[in-house]
Structures are given as structure tokens and as C-alpha cells.
């Protein structure tokens, strides 16, 4: 009987929700460990979690040094992608002509394999961070564009009528109603952008060469795979994994600050 059971107390609920991710992670890692140790695969193909942990411990300095450039690429790339996506969304929103001109191009741009344009990017901008930013922006602006366009269009038409009778200009309607209303949608887009941004950084590092040591985690992964240093490649992937999660929750915090009305449930005070 579902109704007969006493509802869990808030305290127990909090404990449960805190333990759930740990329990799931432990179960997955445990299953992985058993499978890897059973001998049905090779350590070159699938290193066991304890071998990866060992590789992380042994290469902590190397991994940290490679996280730096990758984190920079992702951070800057996401910020640029947000700006570009938001700007394009506003343009597409205010002008039907621009919508018809830009939207198909933006959709099509997502189908172009980065490998095709990577040589051109390197030819233009060399081996620095810039061509990598371009790759990340190309991959990440799209979700921001789509969600923001939808957010801008979701403003109540009556709201715009009201603003018109207050003699608001098109720009004022954007500023006072549409842009703030689209912010939560834009932040959702940013969350998607972030989750593809980390893999975007890997693609960028794989496709455009870098001069010097510590060229980023993606670079490190490719080098390790080639050298059959599979545990270290996995260790680098684990760092990317954790970095992506950290970024995701950092954005959640930013959302609560930027758009508290979207995160707040009715009646709840900030």
C-alpha cells in the first residue's frame, strides 16, 4: 500500500538524495572493476579503475598541467559561444529577414565535420589557442541560439501590447521584457553548450596542432592512446569527466544568481 507508508522525513530524504549519486557511482565502478579483472579484456583496451587511479596518482602533475589549457579553452570558448548564440538569437528574433538568412546556415554549420575546416583554421591563426576557441564556439553556440530564440518568442503577446501602449520602442520591449524573459532559456542552452563544450575542446585539440608541452587533456589522451598508455588516457578522461560536472554545477549557481525568478518555486523566498 503506497498510501499506508509514512512519507520519509525531510532529513531522511536529504540523506537519501546525497547518498544516491555516491551509491550509483560505487556500483558502476565496482562492476567495471569486476569486469576488467575477470580477464575477458586486455588492460590496453579497458584498464581497471584501480589501475586508472594509480595512473592519476602517478601523473597528477602532468594531468593538472594539461587541465590548465583545456579549462581555458572551454571557459573562454563557452563565454564566446554564449555571446555569439545570444547575439544571433536577438538578431534572428527582431528581423524576419535575418531569421530566414541566418537560421539555415546555423543549422547547417552543425553538420560540417571540424576536420574539414581545421586546416584552414590553423592556416589562418596558427597553433595557438585561438583556432581551438573557434572550434568550441562553432560547436557550442548552436544550443544557446536555439533555446534563446525560443525564450524570446515565448514572451506573452499581451505583454508586448501593454509595452506598446506605454510607448515603448522595439528596443525597450527587448530590454524590459524579452531579454530578461529569455534568460532562463539561454542559461538552459548554456548548460547544453557546456556539456558539449568539453568534448568540443577534445575535438579542437585533436584537430588543430599545438606547439609546446602540456597542450591540453585532449592532446594528452591522443598521445597516450597512441603510446598504449591506456590507463593514463583514462585518467585524463576522468579529469575531463569531473571538470564537466564541476562546470555544470557552477552554471547552476550562476543561474540562481542571474535568474532567481526561474529557479525559485512560487512563494519561496530567496
Amino acid at each position: 500500500m503506497r498510501e499506508a507508508r509514512a512519507p520519509p522525513t525531510p532529513h531522511a530524504q536529504r540523506l537519501l538524495s546525497a547518498l544516491a549519486p555516491i551509491a550509483l557511482a560505487c556500483a558502476l565502478v565496482g562492476a567495471w572493476e569486476l569486469y576488467a579483472d575477470s580477464g575477458s579484456t586486455s588492460a590496453y583496451v579497458l584498464p581497471s579503475p584501480h589501475a586508472i587511479a594509480q595512473a592519476m596518482w602517478d601523473n597528477a602533475g602532468l594531468l593538472a598541467a594539461n587541465l590548465g589549457p583545456t579549462a581555458t579553452e572551454v571557459g573562454l570558448g563557452i563565454v564566446l559561444a554564449l555571446l555569439l548564440g545570444f547575439l544571433l538569437a536577438v538578431l534572428v528574433h527582431v528581423s524576419r529577414a535575418l531569421r530566414r538568412a541566418l537560421y539555415p546556415l546555423a543549422v547547417g554549420s552543425q553538420a560540417v565535420p571540424i576536420a574539414v575546416i581545421a586546416p584552414l583554421l590553423v592556416f589562418w591563426w596558427g597553433f595557438g589557442v585561438f583556432p581551438k576557441l573557434v572550434v568550441i564556439v562553432l560547436i557550442c553556440f548552436f544550443p544557446v541560439l536555439v533555446t534563446t530564440v525560443d525564450g524570446l518568442a515565448a514572451v506573452d503577446p499581451d505583454q508586448l501590447k501593454l509595452l506598446r501602449t506605454l510607448d515603448a520602442s522595439r528596443w525597450q520591449a527587448l530590454r524590459f521584457a524579452e531579454l530578461p524573459a529569455a534568460l532562463p532559456a539561454a542559461i538552459s542552452g548554456a548548460r547544453i553548450a557546456l556539456s558539449v563544450g568539453v568534448i568540443g575542446a577534445y575535438i579542437a585539440e585533436s584537430q588543430t596542432a599545438t606547439v609546446g608541452a602540456h597542450a591540453g587533456l585532449g592532446h594528452e589522451i591522443n598521445a597516450d592512446l597512441t603510446a598504449l598508455q591506456t590507463p593514463r588516457a583514462y585518467a585524463a578522461a576522468v579529469v575531463l569527466f569531473a571538470f564537466a560536472i564541476a562546470c555544470f554545477y557552477a552554471l547552476r549557481l550562476a543561474e540562481r544568481r542571474l535568474a532567481p525568478w526561474a529557479a525559485r518555486s512560487p512563494g519561496e523566498r530567496t
Partner: peptide, 23 residues
């Protein structure tokens, strides 16, 4: 004054009332 109040949820009551003045 449309049927629904259409107050902007990100503004305080005073800021909402002042919308015309801001415009």
C-alpha cells in the same frame, strides 16, 4: 491593462509599477 496582470517576475512590485516611467 490586459486581463492578466503581466507583472514582470524579475522586478519588484515598485519596479513593475514604475515600468512606464522607465520606458
Amino acid at each position: 491593462m490586459p486581463q492578466r496582470d503581466l507583472l514582470l517576475p524579475w522586478l519588484s512590485a515598485a519596479d513593475n509599477a514604475a515600468l512606464a516611467l522607465r520606458v
